[in-house]
Design a protein around this nucleic acid. Structure first.
Length: 560
RNA sequence: UGGCGCGUGGCCUAAUGGUAAGGCACCUGACUCUGGAUCAGGGGAUUCUAGGUUCGAGUCCUAGCGCGCCAGCCA
């Protein structure tokens, strides 16, 4: 995925146009981008957009992409997240080769450069507390005031900074700040903090450091060290660019990376904020970061959404600078498009209703040939056992059919897919009046699903032989939130959809489905796309519904 | 209120000064052994507003309005 020698697209999104121009006009000789996650949680589909852009742009111009962890805050970061993020990027289909880096690799260099700035009179140690610093910063409209420690001598700054590093001071006692302009209209330029004291051990550097660089100080220089030509990120960092540029211009860095910002992804009926996702996990609204309802990469994977579909979605959405919220329907459309072409068809009955074929010989079975994929004849056919006792979907029968209901009803004939036409002769009920069994007859002349006399039933049902269907649990998923704009009028957590998961027991599957590998999504005919859950085992099959099929009947019903 | 950015059908995106285009969604119809898929068609935009430059403006200029982001020792 990263080694294609391709030519630049003649016209792409605004970022690709910039890159093409930089190449054409000789500002850069090649293209190196980077994907820079902080390992403080799991990646979500918003990150997938960034990943596709970072790796996609480099690939389109024959360049390369580094995976660099921006691990500058050890109190929030964990090895678990590093591992998870690597796995997610890889699963999405991207390869950083040997270019795996960590901002923490540059801690020594960053420290040296901090000293360089102190010597240049452009950084100072501040003894103000966090509250005092905030107070001195001013507001959006009022300029800030200089710290009383702003004009310390270089010698004193050097001494204090060295002692900060040596661990002489407790957390929060002092910080190193860039000396820029406390009256700058851009608040990021009001003497931003470069280093803070954090007596915390780091997943990578252990206890070597007790002072850590801030993201603002570390990011641009890390890009410079790696020779990143185009530092792509989301819009909220736009206002920080002048600060990155200030560091780059005032430090003897080996290269001058340029940052370009694009709008982050938003999708209706879900939320793409690490902070909120973490709360959903911590407060048990979901079972974990990889819960199939989560918009995390791990959740999407577990839910059965193919990586290629996620990539296609990002392409479909495009890259621009205007804030936008994409409808979930667009995501689902792209996923269905991929799955319709790729997914093998299988039979499964989620809510089984017994059917007895009265005129079918007792004890007889047949192997029916059923296509694996009508979209792709090369996928061949498989055998599905037919017998006297069958399961059909409870919803496929109505004792008193509504006007536009085409499926089975007393006296009506329907087709069982790739099998026979059957006609409902009788309805068996229990003492509560519930339908528990249908007595039907079949037409032996319709074997395979076609009638020699040209009869065409208005409905075709999926079915399973009661004798060999296997039992499974099936989990149905719906939107995580009840409204397209969760939290828009108040508490976001009050908008969590209480019916986002429905667990069905006693579902019947085609026996072959028991061997479906994790990671494969199949279509249960007429029902939707499903995949085995991580909880699934040969002893206890568990399937997730990835997505339903588009359902005109359900839509008409909902419309009334 | 200061700074930065952004305003194109319900949603996303295109146009590179020359007849506002495409996808999603929605609505018809055709076809169909998945009420799926596919195919054909349809409705829907005074390009935020007002001025200006120009033979010609979604695009350039000015002003206004609206929205987003920034006052972490988070990223």
């Amino acid at each position: 995925m990263n080694s294609e020698q391709s030519t630049a697209p003649e016209r792409g999104d605004f970022i690709r146009e910039i890159v093409a121009a930089d190449l054409r006009e000789g500002r850069v000789k090649g293209v190196i981008t980077r994907f820079p996650p902080e390992p403080n949680g799991y990646l979500h589909i918003g990150h997938a957009k960034a990943i596709c852009i970072d790796f996609g742009v480099a690939r389109d111009f024959g360049g390369r992409t580094n995976l660099r962890f921006d691990d500058t805050n050890p109190v929030k970061e964990e090895q678990e997240f590093i591992d998870g993020i690597e796995a997610d990027v890889r699963w999405l289909g991207f390869d950083w080769g040997k270019h795996l880096y960590f901002a923490s690799n540059y801690f020594d260099q960053l420290y040296e450069w901090a000293v360089y700035l102190i010597n240049a009179g452009k950084a100072y140690v501040d003894d103000l507390t966090a509250d005092e610093i905030r107070e001195h910063r001013g507001t959006l409209t009022d300029p800030g005031r200089n710290s009383p420690y702003r004009d310390r001598s270089t010698a004193e700054n050097l001494d204090l900074f060295e002692r900060m590093r040596a661990g002489e001071f407790p957390d929060g006692a002092r910080v190193l700040r860039a000396k820029i302009d406390m009256a700058a209209p851009n608040i990021n330029l009001r003497d931003p903090v470069m280093y803070r004291i954090l007596h915390a051990s780091h997943p990578r550097t252990g206890d070597k450091w007790c002072i850590y660089p801030t993201y603002d100080y570390a990011h641009g220089q890390s890009d410079a060290i790696e020779g990143i030509t185009h530092s792509l990120c989301t819009l909220e960092f736009e206002i920080h660019r002048p600060l990155y540029d200030w560091f780059i211009e005032n430090l003897p860095v080996p290269a001058r990376p340029h940052q370009w910002e694009f709008a982050r992804l938003n999708i209706t009926y879900t939320v793409l904020s690490k902070r909120v996702l973490k709360r959903l996990v911590d407060e048990h609204y979901v079972r974990g970061w990889d819960d199939p309802r989560m918009p995390t990469i791990a959740g999407l994977r577990r839910r059965g959404f193919p990586a290629s579909g996620i990539r296609d979605f990002v392409t479909e959405v495009g890259v621009a600078k205007a804030d936008s919220t994409v409808e979930m329907a667009m995501f689902e459309h792209v996923i269905r498009d991929v799955l319709n072409r790729k997914a093998l068809r299988r039979f499964a009955v989620l809510s089984p209703l017994k059917v007895v074929i009265e005129n079918y010989p007792e004890g007889q079975t047949e192997e029916m040939d059923v296509p694996n994929s009508p979209e792709n004849p090369d996928a061949g056919t498989r055998h599905v056992e037919f017998g006297r006792e069958l399961w059909i979907e409870r919803e496929d029968f109505m004792e008193e059919p509504l006007p536009k209901f085409f499926r089975l009803a007393p006296g009506r004939e329907v087709r069982l897919r790739s099998a026979y036409f059957i006609t409902c002769k009788d309805v068996v009920k229990n003492s509560a009046g519930e339908v528990v069994e249908l007595r039907c007859t079949y037409d032996p002349a319709t074997r395979g699903g076609d009638s020699p006399d040209g009869r065409k039933p208005k409905a075709t049902l999926h079915w399973l032989s009661a004798a060999n269907a296997v039992l499974a649990e099936v989990r149905l998923y719906d939107y995580l939130f009840t409204r397209p704009d969760p939290g828009a009028d108040g508490d976001l957590f009050a908008d969590v959809n209480p019916a986002s998961e429905t667990v069905l027991q006693g579902c019947m599957l085609e026996p072959a489905l028991a061997a479906t590998p994790i990671g494969e999504t199949v279509q249960f005919e007429r029902l939707g796309y499903f995949c085995p859950d991580l909880d699934s085992s040969p002893e206890r099959l568990v399937f997730n519904r990835t997505l339903t099929l588009k359902d005109g009947w359900a839509k008409a019903q909902a419309r009334g």
